[in-house]
Design a protein around this nucleic acid. Structure first.
Lengths: 239, 239
DNA sequence: TGTACATCAGTGAACGCGCGTTCACTGATGTAC
DNA sequence: TGTACATCAGTGAACGCGCGTTCACTGATGTAC
């Protein structure tokens, strides 16, 4: 219950400032070129001082990656929550809102989005299990709810997909229930397909491959997510 | 008609060797870390010699990017051609074959795929118009044919999509006919959606975000492309 | 309340490294007469 | 066929740069008595 000491509070502040300066750096030069020296420079410190807060460059990167996953998941969550409280357009499916939250964050923070979904960083290995997978799961659960909410397990199990091989069915069924294992196999397949679809358009846009669409990228995206929802819903039988 | 001189042939050979060594380098350390010195080292040359072939690092990168686009388009083309000559499974839609050609190339050359679709390289600006857009168009045309081949313009124009705004319709109609401008607007929208869908799954897989699917990524991909085809075809009215 | 000691944020100096690029050169290949 | 000159691939030496990390230090903050 003892409140943090002055030193602890200062340390926390300094750490936060370092992370923010690093994010600023990433926004300017991209994740691959992030340099400790530049971060220190931005803070008016010497590089060596950073080593009191992070044992090395990779440790700082890990924090940045983790935070980016969390911020992205938060952004999607916030988009859904806001729309739930005060629906701007009651006809807009919440999946579209969630997807647009995802897209908006990516466009607002392209370099941090790269950090997550772009080229894996040389020499940097993301921690296998941990906060990053937690944030991913959180986001997955959100989309899953908007896609499949309101359908029974039986309906989902009867979803109309191209046939799944027996080994695939078995594999999907034994995935950890905290993730996708809770869904019947055809629904998992649909989910992956939908996830790729949503992610694909965002990735193309963020990396500049759809710039020929000019100002209409947002509309194409919304259109595409609407179709996605139609397509998926059309594959789930009525109760 | 004069055949190339000895010197010209040697120069061509040397240039090819440099490009190959650079591709090898990229395969080992990734596109961002590509260094002229390492390329020269691999060839047993000094760095300075490279400057007789490329004015600077960016020029080499441009060649590598262009070649990667071409090689990818070639791989897709080859997959379709092979299947046309000697269909391994006559029931497998050619779109699936093209898509799997795309996926296979990406998986076989993940670093070169990154070069095209991963994080844009710092300080490197791709030539706006030129060979890269040509290769992209080539690939686009291939997929377009497999998606929409056999349908009339009238059918495509009547495709069932969520409503397109008037400005979007107008914009899509005036795109250059060499690219997507030849399609009726709803078909273009469908095409973009399909392209994102296909690309998305590949990108997730290549960058390791679907590794939890283990050996089943190929099947999920095929399933997803089959669904994609169903979904699109289902939106185009009968003649 | 004061004093002795431990903790810790920060600095100055330095390390070794690999990088892209430039310059002046040598020697081989090609060309004109 | 031989000779003079131009072209060009390659080298040695060097440039200035920014990087991550280590070490020994100073001075402020916190803690035990």
């Amino acid at each position: 219950m003892s409140q943090p000491s002055l030193r602890e509070r200062r340390r926390a502040t300094a750490t936060r400032e370092i992370v923010e300066a690093a994010e600023q750096q990433i926004a300017e030069v991209g994740p691959a070129t992030l340099s400790l020296r530049a971060v220190a420079r931005a803070l008016g410190m010497t590089v060596q001082a950073l080593y009191h807060y992070f044992p090395n460059r990779d440790a700082l990167l890990t924090v940045l990656v983790t935070k980016a996953y969390d911020d992205l998941a938060d952004a999607v969550q916030a988009a859904v929550d806001t729309a739930a409280d005060d629906p701007a357009d009651p006809d807009l499916p919440r999946l579209v809102i969630a997807a647009e939250g995802y897209r908006s964050w990516a466009i607002a923070h392209p370099e941090r989005f790269q950090l997550l979904y772009g080229t894996p960083l040389r020499g940097y290995e993301a921690p296998a299990e941990g906060p990053t997978t937690r944030a991913t799961r959180r986001m997955g659960t959100l989309f899953e709810r908007e896609l499949f909410g309101g359908f029974t397990k039986a309906q989902l199990a009867a979803a109309d997909t191209p046939p799944l091989s027996a080994p695939l069915r078995a594999y999907l069924e034994q995935l950890p229930p905290s993730g996708l294992g809770a869904l019947p196999p055809p629904a998992t397949a649909l989910f992956m397909s939908a996830w790729g679809r949503l992610h694909g358009l965002v990735v193309l846009e963020v990396f500049g491959h759809t710039s020929f669409l000019g100002d209409h990228q947002a509309e194409i995206f919304r259109l595409s997510v609407r179709s996605l929802l139609d397509d998926i819903r059309g594959r789930i039988p009525a109760a």
